[in-house]
Design a protein around this nucleic acid. Structure first.
Lengths: 341, 341
DNA sequence: TATTTTCACTAAATCGGTTTAGTTATTGAT
DNA sequence: ATCAATAACTAAACCGATTTAGTGAAAATA
């Protein structure tokens, strides 16, 4: 079974490449190709299983029917799940996705953006390291279609889809406060990223709304690269201090699961000794011991919004306006906070 | 900042496109372009941030520096983790990866293979639905570089990377037997897939080696699409029968976690009432209650082997021979099997 | 000195499509 | 009978690279 090219079809049927191309792209009628010829072409194409070379088509059209997805890490369950819905939705509209992980390296992210552009992607979806102002500005200036998600540049006017990190963290913190916990620690990351910064604000404001002072020594900011070790120190510090906490808010799912691991190792009872809550979850959070109360992100909605906005930008001819989307999180109450004290 | 093309460089420097192309592809010396000219070109390119259009380059070279990755589901932690290492290793060698999920739909998988080929990917990595004999035969006939992983076609001679599913399941089943469990159930999928079939064999042979007869009613094969509901029935049946099991082997991580969920709901004590083990794991298996003993797959090795074999095939000019790779699993003993009875 | 090599390039074809600007032949209007 | 309009196409340019087959001048060899 040889590969068939447009040329072959044209030759074999004694018509021009133009005719074949037009017909197979559904532009036969508007270009007044006779029904007879159209049918001939379509049949031949089907019979010989003709599929156009996307590189050639992309080159000549300046469109590749491909979108680029740049995320921090495909192995992280949050990103892999969002990627799943993005890919599915994209495919439904005929787009294939090219993905790359930046591993939080902003330089790499910059290169990835360039590399994707040179592969002529039609649009970009980026969960950014937030340190590539230059590239983002470039995309904006060129009016290149792109949507940020999970992390956006707060000082830049772009399309983005995020969850309300502030309110989410406020909600889980207030949940603890409502149950009578008052010495609430926060284990989070160094707040280089917008969502992390928002989560800190949410935590602080929750305390404030209960007239509880936020204590510096209760807030521990961890270096992501070394979180496995640092979290051990962080938890010990919160628990074994002279004024120990009675609850801990973890700012991400991996901090929470690692935190629980450490608490178990230290033989701390959850929730009796400390209650814990997590921002974002792991699918097993309902069967760990104890099941962890968490604020969960609407994965499907995130993916759908992102794709919808992007494809709109790509396919519409009129300029779309820039529109931030902020989605709500949901509090999933399980057993890691115990009962009202 | 306008985009720079080869032509622009050539025009501005008063040299030919050929010269520019050769130099920028590192073929300046072998084509005797003078050092002066070479430097001029390289400098100009660097200064104006020239990056070749990959579509054009791909079209004319018949190579795209892209590899296609087709997996059942990017949202599954096993596949997302393997994808992570594949992507990282691929990038290191200059390849970008195009991915699509088949969602176990063989027809879709067939289309994906075609679509990837038409995007001129240089090679394919497939965790197949195992129902696309035709496409695989086609790839073989065309000597197109591809590697299967996780699932292969046992009756076809292809490159593939899998783990020893048979031995892995035998190991966990024997682990249960060694602890004195004798009524061992198996909850698995309908064995359309090779790894699943192998796991059944491993289970059966483990029983045989302990001179225990395998009972049909202890083996429950579930339809994947409806596993959430079916597993509930399956577990109940094994536990509440007149001859209840004292242990259950789960053939996948999601069967195991869902199984545990059901056991908790039924108020069954693990491991006192039943011990459980899982083939493959979830990252939280060490903090669930009880921590689940599992046979774990060497994710990193799988990804590395796959990429190594594929890039070898793509880049070497001599015909590589076909080589199956079977990797070892590792038994991770936790608390879900209790002590020796 | 005549001829062959080597040097340092370049023109033009090619990859496989899409698209613009025509070209005939036929039909319709006047 | 004449001119415009329409139907049914097609030739050739183009997308942005790579690559083959040459070219003219200088250097080396006979």
């Amino acid at each position: 079974m040889k590969k068939v090219y447009l040329k072959d079809i044209a030759n074999d049927l004694n018509v021009s490449k133009t005719a074949v191309s037009l017909v197979l792209n559904g532009k036969g009628d508007e270009n007044k190709i006779s029904q007879v010829t159209q049918q001939k072409i379509v049949e031949y194409a089907k019979k010989h299983n003709y599929i156009p070379n996307q590189l050639a088509r992309g080159l000549s059209r300046g469109k590749s029917e491909t979108i680029g997805l740049i995320i921090p890490n495909i192995s992280d369950t949050f990103y892999s799940k969002v990627s799943g819905v993005i890919e599915r939705k994209a495919k439904e509209q005929g787009y294939t996705v090219l993905f790359s992980s930046s591993y939080e390296d902003s330089e790499k992210e910059g290169e990835l953006i360039q590399s994707m552009l040179n592969r002529q992607v039609d649009g970009l979806i980026i969960a950014s390291t937030q340190k590539n102002q230059k590239e983002i500005d470039f995309l904006k200036k060129e009016k290149f279609p792109f949507v940020l998600f999970d992390r956006h540049y707060p000082n830049k006017d772009t399309d983005y889809v995020v969850v309300d990190n502030y309110l989410g963290t406020k909600k889980i913190t207030e949940h603890l406060l409502n149950l009578g916990r008052e010495q609430i620690g926060l284990i989070t990351l160094k707040p280089a990223l917008e969502p992390i910064a928002q989560r800190l604000l949410g935590y602080n404001d929750a305390l404030k709304s209960f007239n509880i002072e936020s204590r510096k020594e209760y807030i521990i900011e961890i270096e992501r690269e070394a979180y496995l070790e640092e979290i051990e120190k962080a938890v010990s510090k919160l628990i074994l201090s002279s004024t120990p906490v009675d609850a801990i808010v973890f700012a991400t799912h991996y901090l929470a699961s690692q935190g629980l691991r450490v608490l178990k190792k230290l033989n701390i009872n959850v929730p009796q000794d400390v209650a814990i809550v997590s921002f974002d979850e792991l699918s097993a959070f309902d069967i760990v011991e104890p099941p962890i109360t968490a604020v969960i992100q609407p994965i499907k909605e995130i993916g759908c919004s992102v794709i919808e906005i992007l494809l709109n930008k790509i396919e519409s001819t009129v300029q779309q306006d820039i529109k931030p989307t902020v989605l709500k999180t949901k509090l999933e109450i399980r057993e890691s906070c115990g009962q009202l004290l």
